[in-house]
Each structure stands twice: as structure tokens, then as C-alpha cells.
Design a protein around this nucleic acid. Structure first.
Lengths: 200, 200
DNA sequence: TAAAAAATTAATCAAATGATTAAAAAAAAT
DNA sequence: ATTTTTTTTAATCATTTGATTAATTTTTTA
């Protein structure tokens, strides 16, 4: 527990590989040997540092969930910004983050299906719904409607293209570069669309 | 190959169970024994009828992909309907179908990640993009923009709530009934929103 | 009804896989 | 320098898992 640099180095090496392999293949399809090989360490070291596949996965999953909500929360809770400004910020930051982590949504959502209870509690969904200024702003504009409708639509327009990315990229119509360009365009389009939707 | 009713009965029993288990747990996390138990048949029968886990999975996957696009295609290709009418139809039919098969999108998309090339070819994405009247109608209204933007937004607003369903239901805010009610509301909301978006 | 074919089962195999152990190597402490 | 602790490795274990086999039962055919 002394050699801090090297400790962190191997532990981090394992984590880096685990992030990569788990994210790409999912928990069930990932073999601990894959991670060991990817990180260039002995298989036993993985258990030495992380005790089990489950615990290593949990470490990765917690990080990913944090990424998924870390960007979102501060903006949604902020009380000193207009609704439209918040939409701009959320869309811009989220698309930037997802361009760096394209398979984050599909990973988190599909793993959530297999480990239902374990990770839901780590998601601050009730905070968003019950305490966020953003939801309150929606309610002011549309007191008669469920505010989740609008949150869903915004997130759907932002996140869904990343879920569909494998479909639309591999086909050849939209390549990797084209996808990135499209998502950058969406940064400007989505806020305008949302503005229009809210006016109805 | 004669006793047709009973043949189909066991084969169908296996398929029913396979649909259920594969959809719930994904390919990698599914054990052939799970399917055998779920369908109340001997494990060897599974291989007797479907040769391998892979082939059984492929049978299920093909069905699911067909469901995912079967609804969509006819409407998108239709040449005798207005754009707005098509949006109405797509949204209505798709939401109805997804209410019957809530985990269809997350299943297909996450499996696509693990079997990338194998199933992409079974998706008529290029037909949608290159030959659909729907895309042409979008291009007429917005000649300067990539029509995929609008397709993505429509599908995102429709499908994304189903991807997020486990998150928003388990929390307690929106229960199963609430979710269904919300999606029924969206049948009317989304077409109005799309109409507004297209006017910009 | 007897023979042939098809369906079903129990038992088993071989490979894969998560995990452990015991020994060796490296680093830290004394 | 020597001891102790920490890190790393190779070998191995026990279990799981997809698949097969050989025997049994059921159904079909003749």
C-alpha cells in the first residue's frame, strides 16, 4: 500500500481495459481474461485488485452512470437561467460528452436491464423529477401536462442518434465523420426545435 | 416431419421461451438451459430443433428486427399521404407496437453491438434513406438540411422513452400504468410537435 | 400389428471461465 | 543487509455451459 504510483498504475491499467471491454461487449459477454489481456496483466491480478468480476464491473458502471448524469444535473438544478438557455447548455454539453463516449447510453441502458435494482439507486432521477428547477420551468409553461414529456423529447433528440449510430454509420450513408458533423448541427437545431415545441 | 401440430407445438414452445429469455437477458447472459426450462422441454431438444444457441438466437433476432421495421416501412414508402399524416401514422402505430414490446428497442440495439455485421444487413435502412417518399418530403420542406435530422428526432421522441422506461418506472414516480398513459398522450403530442418543428 | 421414423430424455463430454493457491519477484521497512 | 510486506505470476480448481450421444418412447408408415 505504499508504492502509490505503481499501485495506481496497474490498478488504473486494469480499469482502463475494463472500461473498454465492458463498454464494448457488455458484462455477460466479457471474459475477465479479455480484460487481463487488454491491460497486459496477469489474470490473477485482476482478482487481487478488484476481488471479482462483479466488483470490477460495478466500479466501471458507477463511473459511467456518473458521466451520464454528471453533465445534466447541474444545469437542470440551476435556478438562475432561463429555460431556453438551459436547453442550449444541456444539448451542447451532452452532445459533446456523447461524441467522446458514443456507446455510453446503449451500454448503461442495456446493463441496467440485467442488473435492474443494483444501479437504479445510483441514478438521481427522482431528484431531477422532484427538485429540479428545469422541471418547474416546464410546469410553468405547461401546467396541464406531464413535464416528463418534454424532458423525454429533449433527451430523445439528443441521445437517440447515438443509440442508432451503429445502424446509420455502418450502412455507408453516414460515416464516422458525417455522424460527428450531424451531431454538431444538432447542437443548434435542437434548442430551436424545443423552443418551438414549448410555444404550442 | 409429419405430426405437424405437435412438431410446431414444441418448436413453437422453444421459440416462445427463447423470445422471452433472449429479450430479457440478451444473448450472452442467456443459458440454453434457461430456455429449455422456460419452455419445459429437455435441453437436447433445443439443439435437436435449432442446432445451436446461435441459430436459435438468429431466428429470434430476425423476428425482432422485422417488428422494428415492419411497422415503419410501409408508411415511409407510401406516396399518397401528406407528410403530417405519415407522422401521425408512424407515431401511432409505433407506440402501439412498442407498448406491446417495450424492450424491443434496447434488445435489438444492444445485441447489434455484439453481432455488428451479422444483422445490419437485415435492416432496410438504406431503403428508408434513399428510396422513401418520407425522406423526399422532408427534403422538399428543408432542402438545405440533412433529412436524417428529422427522422432521428421523430424516432427519438417515440422510441427513447421505451429505452429509458426501466429508469423512470422503477423509481416510483411513474409506474407501469403511468407509463402507458404517458405514451398514449405522446401519440397526439409528437405529431403536433413535429409539425411545429417542420415550420421553422 | 410390425417395422421404420421421429421425438424425447438422461447422461455425459469438452471447452470455457471465474477464481484461488502457492511460489517467485519486487519493493519497503528495519 | 536482512527481514517483511507487497506485487506478480504460473498452475490449477471447480463450476458452468453449449453440445452430443446413445438409449427410450412416441408416432407414422406399410
Amino acid at each position: 500500500m505504499k508504492n502509490k504510483t505503481k499501485d495506481q498504475s496497474t490498478e488504473e491499467k486494469i480499469l482502463v481495459a475494463a472500461r473498454k471491454v465492458f463498454t464494448k461487449k457488455g458484462f455477460a459477454a466479457t471474459r475477465t481474461r479479455d480484460i487481463a489481456e487488454e491491460s497486459g496483466i496477469n489474470l490473477a491480478l485482476l482478482n487481487y485488485y478488484f476481488k471479482s468480476k462483479e466488483l470490477l464491473f460495478e466500479a466501471v458502471m458507477v463511473e459511467k452512470i456518473a458521466m451520464l448524469f454528471g453533465q445534466l444535473m447541474p444545469v437542470l438544478l440551476e435556478t438562475d437561467l432561463s429555460f431556453n438557455k438551459k436547453v442550449e447548455l444541456v444539448v451542447e454539453r451532452y452532445i459533446d460528452m456523447l461524441l467522446e463516449n458514443p456507446d455510453l447510453p446503449i451500454f448503461v441502458m442495456s446493463e441496467l436491464r440485467n442488473h435492474p435494482d443494483r444501479f437504479l439507486e445510483k441514478m438521481p432521477v427522482d431528484v431531477i423529477l422532484r427538485e429540479s428547477h428545469f422541471i418547474r420551468q416546464i410546469q410553468e409553461k405547461h401546467p396541464d401536462q406531464n413535464p416528463i414529456h418534454y424532458l423525454m423529447s429533449i433527451l430523445g433528440m439528443v441521445i437517440f442518434p447515438f443509440v442508432m449510430k451503429p445502424v446509420f454509420t455502418k450502412i455507408g450513408k453516414t460515416d464516422e465523420k458525417g455522424f460527428k458533423a450531424m451531431m454538431k448541427e444538432r447542437k443548434k437545431l435542437i434548442p430551436k426545435w424545443v423552443e418551438a415545441i414549448m410555444e404550442i
